[in-house]
Simulated assay, not measured.
Amino acid sequence: MINTESLPKTIYAIQHLAFEDLGSLEDTFYQLGFRVRYFEAGVDDLSPALNYEGLTIILGGPIGVYESEDYPFLVDEIAGLKQRLTANKPTIGICLGAQLIAHALGAKVYAGHQKEIGWGLLEIKADEPNILSPLKDTHVLHWHGDTFDLPENATLLASSDIYPNQAFSIGNNILALQFHLEIAEQSFEKWLIGHTCEIRHAGLSIPQLRQDNLCYAAQSEQQSHKIMKKFIENIRL
Rank of each mutant, 00 (worst) to 15 (best):
232 I>D: 07
86 T>M: 13
19 F>H: 10
126 A>F: 01
226 K>C: 11
145 G>H: 12
30 Y>S: 12
82 K>R: 15
54 G>K: 06
222 Q>N: 11
78 I>G: 02
7 L>C: 10
24 S>H: 04
180 H>R: 03
46 L>Y: 07
194 G>Q: 05
195 H>P: 00
51 N>Q: 13
126 A>S: 14
202 A>V: 08
224 S>H: 08
223 Q>V: 12
234 N>M: 07
83 Q>F: 07
86 T>S: 15
183 I>K: 05
214 L>Q: 14
174 I>Q: 10
201 H>N: 15
231 F>L: 13
5 E>M: 12
57 I>A: 05
131 I>T: 09
229 K>R: 14
117 I>Y: 05
71 Y>F: 15
223 Q>G: 01
51 N>F: 06
205 S>M: 08
41 A>N: 09
214 L>K: 12
15 Q>F: 00
87 A>P: 01
111 A>S: 11
101 I>V: 07
36 V>P: 00
3 N>A: 12
43 V>Y: 12
109 V>K: 04
51 N>D: 14
27 D>Q: 12
202 A>M: 11
219 Q>V: 12
35 R>I: 07
155 T>D: 03
34 F>P: 00
162 I>W: 00
192 L>C: 07
18 A>S: 10
134 P>F: 09
23 G>I: 03
189 E>L: 07
56 T>V: 09
150 L>W: 02
14 I>F: 04
215 C>T: 13
54 G>H: 02
77 E>C: 08
126 A>E: 14
165 N>H: 13
113 H>A: 11
121 L>G: 03
172 N>E: 13
27 D>E: 13
149 D>K: 04
95 C>L: 06
108 K>D: 13
107 A>H: 08
120 G>W: 02
193 I>Q: 12
219 Q>K: 15
225 H>A: 15
17 L>M: 14
3 N>E: 09
8 P>T: 07
117 I>Q: 06
227 I>K: 12
47 S>H: 12
98 A>I: 09
88 N>L: 14
110 Y>H: 07
54 G>Y: 00
115 K>R: 13
197 C>Y: 14
186 Q>I: 03
227 I>F: 09
192 L>K: 05
14 I>H: 05
193 I>V: 15
114 Q>D: 07
113 H>C: 08
169 S>V: 05
57 I>D: 03
89 K>F: 10
179 F>K: 02
162 I>N: 09
104 A>I: 06
141 L>E: 02
88 N>R: 15
186 Q>M: 06
118 G>S: 04
115 K>Y: 11
184 A>E: 10
31 Q>M: 11
225 H>K: 15
74 L>P: 02
154 A>G: 03
176 A>G: 06
24 S>Q: 03
148 F>D: 03
197 C>Q: 14
121 L>E: 10
190 K>L: 13
123 E>I: 10
27 D>C: 05
73 F>T: 07
62 P>H: 09
9 K>S: 09
90 P>N: 11
68 S>L: 04
128 E>D: 10
57 I>S: 05
64 G>L: 02
179 F>Y: 04
25 L>Q: 07
159 S>Q: 04
181 L>G: 01
194 G>H: 05
174 I>K: 05
40 E>P: 01
223 Q>I: 08
223 Q>P: 00
173 N>G: 03
113 H>Q: 13
9 K>I: 03
208 Q>L: 14
165 N>G: 02
225 H>W: 10
51 N>H: 10
224 S>R: 04
102 A>W: 05
210 R>P: 00
29 F>T: 00
